[in-house]
Each structure stands twice: as structure tokens, then as C-alpha cells.
């Protein structure tokens, strides 16, 4: 017997995504924004696994695994950007970096 139905899984995923989105919008420290984005990706993976489990096949797990690769790639580059921010202006506040240029 499954521990939770599709609706419960999607509800938890929605809650997690909302909390992560709020953190990404409201926080000013770059590392906190990265951590909040990670919460959003976790919610998306949970949603995919929930749908896969409800459809009784493994495709959801495969999609979630590939989404995890995107998370890791995203956070690799994100962490490098945060380190670059620290180096260039000795600050990790996203408000200090409002201009985009090469």
C-alpha cells in the first residue's frame, strides 16, 4: 500500500516549492537564494516521482534523476558566481549586483 496518494505528494511538493520561491525572492544573501532555489528543484523532483508512482512506471524516477543533473550543474555555476561576487566587491548581497555586463 502506498504511503500517500498523488494529491498528498503534490500538496507537499507545492508547499516546498512555495517556501523555496518565497526564500529566493525575499532573501538578499546570494547563498540563501541558491539554497532556496535548491528547495524549488527538490519540489519539482518530488512532483515527478509522485506522478511516476501514481502511473505505476519508472519514467518519473528517470525524469527526476535527469532533473537532479540539471540541479547539480546549476548549483556548480551558481556557487562559482557567488565566489566571483565575493572576490570582485567583497559582498554576497544580490542587491549590490544589479548591472549585467561582460
Amino acid at each position: 500500500m502506498a504511503p500517500a496518494g498523488l494529491a498528498e505528494v503534490q500538496l507537499v511538493a507545492l508547499l516546498l516549492f512555495g517556501i523555496g520561491l518565497l526564500g529566493a525572492i525575499l532573501r538578499r544573501r546570494a547563498a540563501s537564494v541558491l539554497a532556496s532555489v535548491q528547495l524549488c528543484f527538490g519540489a519539482a523532483s518530488l512532483s515527478l516521482v509522485g506522478f511516476g508512482q501514481s502511473a505505476a512506471d519508472g519514467a518519473g524516477q528517470v525524469f527526476a534523476l535527469l532533473a537532479l543533473v540539471v540541479v547539480v550543474a546549476n548549483l556548480c555555476v551558481g556557487t562559482a558566481i557567488v565566489i566571483g561576487m565575493r572576490r570582485s566587491r567583497n559582498s554576497a548581497d544580490v542587491e549590490d549586483f544589479s548591472a549585467m555586463r561582460w
Binding site: 502506498a2 500517500a4 505528494v9 527538490g42 523532483s45 518530488l46 516521482v49 524516477q61 527526476a64 537532479l68
Partner: peptide, 17 residues
């Protein structure tokens, strides 16, 4: 999250995560 994945029948995904 890893516990939820394991409970949903995706233990490997939970471990990877």
C-alpha cells in the same frame, strides 16, 4: 526529501539526492 523518495519507491533517487 530523501525519506519521501524512499517511501515513494525511489530509494536510489533519494540516495543520489
Amino acid at each position: 526529501l530523501a525519506c519521501l523518495f524512499a517511501l515513494l519507491g525511489a530509494p536510489l533517487l533519494g540516495a543520489f539526492w
